[in-house]
Nucleic acid binder design. Structure first.
Ligand SMILES: [Mn+2]
Ligand SMILES: [Mn+2]
Ligand SMILES: [Zn+2]
Ligand SMILES: [Zn+2]
Lengths: 148, 148
DNA sequence: GTGGGAATTGGAATAATTCCAAATAAAGCG
DNA sequence: CGCTTTATTTGGAATTATTCCAATTCCCAC
């Protein structure tokens, strides 16, 4: 059986095992919540979503599990200024557009070629582990529908 | 007298007037502190530096004045993850390199042409008011000297 | 089954920033 | 000048997201 795109729980198990971590129900439900609605929720938003299925979960656990997912490279942290950290399960290289009007976050694809161009801006001796590109602005009303 | 590169106090006065704001000693000393050591200090760091010259200034005022300078487009706010906001008086378009080792921040020039390339990644309907590019990584020991 | 480390939990603590109401300073005016 | 009005500063309280902590619960290996 080839790894299908809905093999997400398996990917979680694999990555956790790889790091010598346990696959708990809390970690699973949180990872599924992120995959189910990829709107870059905050920890608090994840907490509300996950409590529907698992009312006994604690906010501290949500923070702990999110951190674990980030360390397993299953999820990216996204920050806009000093706002609450948001979580993104899109593993493809991409930039973020923050719509100041609605507060919504949209993924923007960035071709590897452009990423390379940007990395080349660094002088000798600078070694970047990661590159973040963030847009801030407004979206046309019409574009709002498209972006769904 | 042509506007020289050390005409910074004049620039401050001009920008404040343009926004109908007053030119206070607190605003001046804070702006000078930023220009004097362009290492992207936090509000707390600005507070310590400025207290040498003006021991009676309050932290609240430092926050207020920094916000004013940002609104006058004399200073940019810079954030790394959820760390304290840093302040940058470099008005040329540039990216930031965050050295995880030392915590230091370095300006990286970005040619307008590349900025344009990046802006073109946005689909129709997306209007970006600002674009941020942030590198996270380590610098070679040798490069540390160069970057002064 | 038992022991021991891992994970979860609730609540306290932290840190940066913002808010607030009172005091002070600056500007405009006659 | 005095007076009035408005902006700014100030100290301290409040806020918010996150981290810390110690106690409990859960798992897995033996
Ligand atoms: Mn924003
Ligand atoms: Mn960093
Ligand atoms: Zn994303
Ligand atoms: Zn800068």
């Amino acid at each position: 059986m080839r790894s299908s795109s809905s093999d997400h729980p398996a990917k979680l198990a694999e990555r956790l095992a790889h790091s010598g971590l346990r696959n708990t129900p809390q970690r699973e439900v949180i990872y599924r919540a992120l995959l189910g609605k990829r709107d870059h929720p905050t920890a608090d938003e994840v907490y509300s979503r996950v409590r529907v299925e698992m009312p006994s979960i604690s906010l501290a656990t949500v923070y702990n599990c999110l951190e674990t997912l980030v360390q397993c490279d299953l999820v990216r942290q996204v920050n806009f200024e000093r706002g609450p950290t948001r979580y993104c399960p899109n593993l493809h290289p991409h930039a973020h557009f923050h719509d100041e009007q609605s507060g919504a976050t949209h993924d923007i694809d960035v071709p590897a070629e452009i990423m390379e161009r940007i990395r080349e801006l660094l002088p000798a001796g600078y070694a970047a582990k990661s590159i973040e590109i963030t847009f801030h602005g407004r979206m046309a009303e019409a574009a709002n529908e498209q972006a769904r």
